[in-house]
Amino acid sequence: MTQMLTVMGARIIEILQLIGGIALFFLRTLRALVPPKYDARETWRAFYKVGVQSYTIVILTAMFTGAIMVIQAGGTIQASRATSFVGWAAGFTVLSEIGPVLIGLMFSGRVGANNTAELGTMVVTEQVDALRTLAIDPMNYLAVPRFIAMIVMLFLLVALGDLFALLGGAITSHVMLDISYSVFVSQVIDAQLLDEYILGLIKGSLFGMSIAIVSCYFGFTVRGGAPGVGRAVNNSVVASAIGILAIDLLVGIIHHAVR
């Protein structure tokens, strides 16, 4: 019993230390944002890499998500013959909730994990120390460009992915529920989901921010060679997933409270 408590206590302290470390890292990143002296080349490279790495997986995921939401809503809706509801139901859940979350999770698996691996490798092979010896601040040079790129790109990817999710939903409603494309589109437009769309975009940017912070933090703190890099990637995606769901809940609550 005492042993179990000791183990649990150690685990809790470990988690609190981790949260503290990530919070501190977040503040350091914000501090490095001013004055705005970003390395244009590295920032551009980060944008390019983040975009190229993730857009296929995001678009595919989004289309499947839209389709799955229509299938799930389909059963209930067919039973109650309320087919005019499909556009609203699918549009609402996809735009405000499941779209940004699934896109965020995929983005974290693709871009976040890759970023941790890249930075971790740079730490293990002393490339980060080499930057420091050239009097270049790794926070400024490596973390800030990735931070900016991930926020902007996840915003754009959610904006784009939402449209593909609706497309996937429209195709599925047409095939399964026999609702024509024009009817589906007019249903989505009638549902007036601009609020939800904007909410989803805000969530996307916040997810991008948390993925950037978490993946850079785990990358910079890698210890112990190649196995260390693997472990860090594992921890990074896990922490990002928790971050995404926690932010989703918080934004939902704040949004409700404000309205």
């Binding site: 698996g109 941790t116 691996a117 190649a226 594992n234």
Partner: peptide, 13 residues
């Protein structure tokens, strides 16, 4: 070492 990172990423995705 970058191989392990890439493999882990690929596994997640």
């Amino acid at each position: 070492s970058e191989g392990v990172g890439t493999a882990t990423t690929r596994a997640v995705v």
